[in-house]
Simulated assay, not measured.
Amino acid sequence: MNENEAITHVVDMTSRLAQWRIDNFDSTSRLESQSFKIGDWDWNLVLKKKLNFVIKLVPALVSSGHDPLIASLKMRVVSLVGGRKTLARAGIWNQQVDYTQEGQKFVWVLEVPLTRRFIIEVEFLDLKTASPNGGEPRSVWSEGFTGNQKAKAVAGFGRLLSESIHTDIVIHASDGSIGAHRAVLAPRSLVFDSMFTHNLKEKELSAVNIPDMSIEACQAFLSYIYSNNMQYEDFLTHRLDLLRSADKYDVADLKDACEESLIKDIGSENVLERLQIAFMYSLPRLKVCCIKYLVKFGKIFDIEKEFNAFVQSADRELVSEVVDKIISAWKGV
């Protein structure tokens, strides 16, 4: 290394992904990254050399009263010299985090030399909290959605829907029907309000047809509108149907919840689909996060074949925007 070149390193991150980029690396150095937040927890990466290079992922110490945290994640080291080349991969699944000073951290031993410029990438597949008293671990990424629901609806309305109390309109899904209430639907959706106020067929027939939604997805959609009793697993199962209905019937808070959820689990296997969803339903934050994931984090190189197919088939306006971002990023390198 040129003696005038100092080692530089910086962490970039999304909701589940952290990339620690190191330039002008000196193989004798011990480095520690700045803290980065995944979920509600702070983490650091440490790189040092013993017989081999060792990478440690270190969680911040927390009070002893904290619920146990269970992590699933994968790590990758990517050389940036002469193009991008993966030097090492590793992963852990459902391992409990030890916060104590003496506890064993997540440690990877590299059996390959490191180049002058490289990235250490950690992608969290899931983080779960488990009650010390037992019970099923719960993903930390489900908690924000649950809280949002509670803030948006009144729990007592749930019985109106589930027990069909004094219903005055019928929602016809593709494979079934559900009784509902104009007085609940109208305040939550300007589209429903317009249907029931003006002389439209929905007002005359006391029915709303949603032929592009299954009865299960329709139940989840109405459960969100009425109360806070939609399970997070049901939300994930029907998330795209819920987004489509939220957009169609102008339920803004549900649309926001879907966008936030789609941002949280962007990955190489879904980023191009998410990008098209963002464009289709006018989700600007999701679009920005997808482009950032592809360009800033270099994931476009991991899905080159799929990206080429995307360029050929996707909307021209969207493709042009993505390509412009790529060109701008490469000019800045």
Rank of each mutant, 00 (worst) to 15 (best):
E202I: 00
Q219P: 08
V208A: 13
T197N: 00
N229R: 06
H198P: 04
N199W: 00
F235C: 04
Q219M: 14
S227H: 00
L222S: 07
Q231A: 15
F235R: 02
M230T: 07
L222D: 05
L222P: 11
L222Y: 06
E216L: 15
L222C: 07
N228W: 01
D212S: 13
C218D: 12
M230Q: 06
P211V: 12
A217I: 08
L200Q: 10
S223M: 07
N199A: 02
N209C: 14
F235E: 02
A207M: 14
A217C: 10
E233W: 09
Y226V: 03
D212C: 10
S214M: 11
N228Q: 06
Y232C: 07
Y232G: 08
H198D: 05
E204A: 04
L200W: 09
Q219Y: 09
N228K: 03
N228G: 03
K203S: 06
I225A: 01
D234E: 14
E216C: 14
L222F: 05
A220G: 07
N228M: 05
H198I: 00
E204F: 02
L222N: 04
L205A: 12
F221V: 07
H198Y: 10
Y232T: 13
T197P: 01
Q231E: 13
A217M: 09
M230F: 02
K203L: 01
A220N: 10
F221Q: 06
D212Y: 07
Q231G: 12
S223H: 08
F221R: 04
V208Y: 05
I215D: 14
A220V: 12
